[in-house]
Simulated assay, not measured.
Amino acid sequence: MDNVGIVVDDLEGAVAFFTELGMELEGEALLEGTTPDRMLGLDGVRSAIAMMRTPDGHGKLELTVFHAPAAVPAAPLEPPANTLGLHRVMFAVDDLDDTVARLRGHGAELLGEVTQYENAYRLCNLRGPAGIIVALAERIG
Rank of each mutant, 00 (worst) to 15 (best):
I6E: 02
A71C: 01
G105N: 04
P69V: 02
T115G: 11
A130G: 09
R53D: 06
T19A: 12
P55G: 02
A50C: 05
V134C: 04
N82V: 13
G33K: 07
R53K: 12
G85S: 03
V100L: 06
L111H: 08
Y117E: 14
K60H: 15
L25E: 14
V8Q: 05
H58A: 09
D98M: 03
A135R: 13
T64D: 04
V93H: 03
A50R: 00
G85F: 05
M23N: 05
V15M: 05
D10A: 05
L30Q: 11
A14F: 04
L42M: 12
E62D: 11
V4C: 12
L110Q: 01
D98Y: 02
R53H: 02
N82R: 14
E109R: 15
V45Y: 09
F18H: 10
I133N: 00
K60P: 04
L31G: 07
M90F: 15
L25K: 09
E62K: 02
E138K: 09
G141P: 04
V114P: 06
N82P: 04
M39T: 15
I140P: 09
G57K: 11
R46K: 14
G107M: 09
R88Y: 00
V89Y: 14
M90A: 15
H67G: 09
G57F: 03
E24A: 14
